[in-house]
Amino acid sequence: MSRLAIPKTYKLYIGGKFPRSESGRVYEVTSADGTFLANAAKASRKDARDAVVAARSAFSGWSGATAYNRGQVLYRIAELLEGRRAQFIAEIIESEGASPADAMAQVDDAIDSWVWYAGWADKYVQATGGANPVSGPYFNISVPEPTGVVAIVAPQGTGQGTGQQAAGSLLGLVNVVAPALVSGNTVVVIANEAAPLAAISLSEVLATSDVPGGVINILTGSPAEMAPWLASHADVNAIDLAGAGALDWVDLQIAAAETLMRVLPPEPGVPAASLDRISFFTETKTVWHTKGLI
């Protein structure tokens, strides 16, 4: 007789903890063929706001860590993911209906992407900043600094059904979260609504990694419901609408204008890994200092 399996309760990841939604709501996550997989927490406006508070509290520590340290912490995530490849592959096959080969490729790419971004942590400053030759006796240097709290709508969809882009429930998430983290931003991300399992399992990886609680906060539920609250939240500094293409994203951009929030518009599919995505969530700070006359 086969052993009776123990299904996992999937919860939110806020401030390094795994709360249920304060609203008590869940929604059904199904496989590509409609089979019930899990009840995921359906995060509310309040959960989103709690996540922003957690992200803000974590900002000073994470942005103040040395670049070398942030790079190691991000690399550690890749190490842990590597050890859980089988779990993520299985979840992607189940929830996206992907072939084993495609699921494996997606997980491998996601891990490699973490490694690629981890390596940028102590390099992007040199690549995008620099010393400025001003006309006068001044030391003058420009360095990029993290923008602050970044809200993200992760790529959506499972690739199933007409007009659906294969968003890659793990790779899509990694390729929007990792670049924001590199410079020291903290993140509130709305996971892929239809295929949230990989995101929640990633939060288990994060919880056992060295990432401080609150640096990454993962919400499952409806982007249409939560994104407007994040776009109009005065303590969010930037919003990545990567996966918001199917929402009323122009309205989100208009809401974000109220606080001059930085807005990255929607992109189809999985955003490519790029230095641009790191730079977009940074602010160039220029420091002048007088030089003495000797």
Binding site: Q106, D112, S113, W116, L171, V270, A273, S274, L275, D276
Partner: peptide
């Protein structure tokens, strides 16, 4: 959509 330096992981 991308600057220099996208070579390693840009394409799945």
């Amino acid at each position: 959509g991308s600057a220099s330096g996208t070579d390693s992981t840009s394409s799945p």
